[in-house]
């Protein structure tokens, strides 16, 4: 019986970790949908937002003020990206826009270091950090922090999905994602739409940055962790908000399960086949997501929920 509870604990902690991936993936999806750009700088935006936020907190500002000012900074950032980069690259090939975002990523990383330095900052915004013990004899441990993070992510996603499907601006965003020129021709101002999208992505980056930062400390490694969103996107589909969520959950849970249960099984298999005893395998967690993504690329390239590439016959 206690084994079952242990399994449940592993599964849940995986799902919670998955919501964190989902949050970062969400930022990618937003920008990809509206401008067809894979925004390499999303990870750096997570880092930058978190650094600004923690920097203001360390200056003694209250949490709310720091958050509002940081959102303001992300909006200003969105505006400058549109003004200085995107506006001049309208109708260029996707690879050119992608290269531009790589440039943006490196600039922003350097800029963040220039302003805030490269120290690791601890962050505590008052998310509870105790554990609950569930089960008849308290076999299963649930981190309150994980639960809170999952709830925040869930709320954010619900709001965004509603926004995309039922509002005038949301519809315009999806229209721009489909066809820039046609969107222009019906009078949708691309520039405004891009500023809105990058602002929303900046806001999502801030939320992700605060949660990741509270867990790991605000540090430059955040921008690399954010690339874990890549397999999540391949799984869920680059154009789907729900896909980003489910993809994140699958990867999060899959990683943990593969680490705990998959690794011993693989080790046993290898030792059986090679005849060498006592092989122990670890680190499955590190590569599991990428291998899973590779299988998806082979068999379902548009992801679980991605928009099918429409080809009429």
């Amino acid at each position: 019986m206690s084994e079952f509870w242990f399994f449940l604990e592993v599964l849940l902690s995986g799902l919670f970790a998955g919501t964190m991936y989902s949050l970062v993936a969400l930022g990618f999806v937003l920008i990809f949908k509206a401008s067809g750009v894979f925004n390499f700088a999303q990870g750096t935006m997570v880092l930058f937002a978190a650094l600004c936020f923690v920097g203001f907190l360390e200056m003694g500002w209250p949490v709310a003020v720091a958050a509002i000012v940081t959102v303001g900074i992300m909006v200003a950032w969105a505006y400058s990206v549109e003004r200085l980069v995107l506006r001049h690259l309208v109708n260029q090939a996707p690879i050119i826009l992608f290269m531009a975002t790589i440039g943006i990523a490196f600039f922003l990383e350097g800029f963040a270091e220039f302003i805030w330095g490269s120290d690791v900052h601890p962050l505590n915004v008052g998310i509870p950090n105790d554990a609950w013990f569930v089960g008849p004899e308290g076999e299963m441990m649930i981190q309150q922090f994980d639960l809170a993070a999952a709830i925040i992510a869930g709320l954010l996603v619900t709001v965004l999905a509603l926004f995309f499907h039922y509002t005038r601006i949301g519809r315009a965003l999806r229209a721009v994602a489909d066809d820039h020129q046609a969107a222009l021709s019906v009078g949708i101002p691309l520039n405004q739409i891009w500023v809105i999208v990058w602002s929303v992505a900046g806001f999502v980056a801030l939320v992700a940055g605060i949660i990741w930062g509270s867990r790991l400390g605000v540090q430059f490694a955040l921008s690399i962790i954010a690339l874990k969103a890549l397999p999540v996107l391949i799984l869920g589909g680059f154009t789907s908000v729900p896909g980003a969520i489910v993809g994140g959950l699958i990867i999060g849970a899959g990683e943990k399960l593969a680490e705990i249960y998959g690794a011993p099984a693989i080790a046993e298999l290898v030792s059986y086949m090679s005849g060498i005893n006592n092989i122990s395998l670890g680190g499955v967690e590190e590569w599991f997501a990428y291998v899973l993504a590779m299988f998806f690329l082979l068999f379902r390239p548009q992801g679980l929920f991605g928009e099918r590439i429409i080809e009429r016959v």
Partner: peptide, 20 residues
């Protein structure tokens, strides 16, 4: 140049974008 992934009705509605 219809918006392929939007429904026909959503396509029509984007035409009314400038009308607020």
């Amino acid at each position: 140049h219809c918006f392929e992934h939007l429904t026909v009705e959503e396509n029509l509605l984007t035409g009314a974008f400038t009308r607020g």
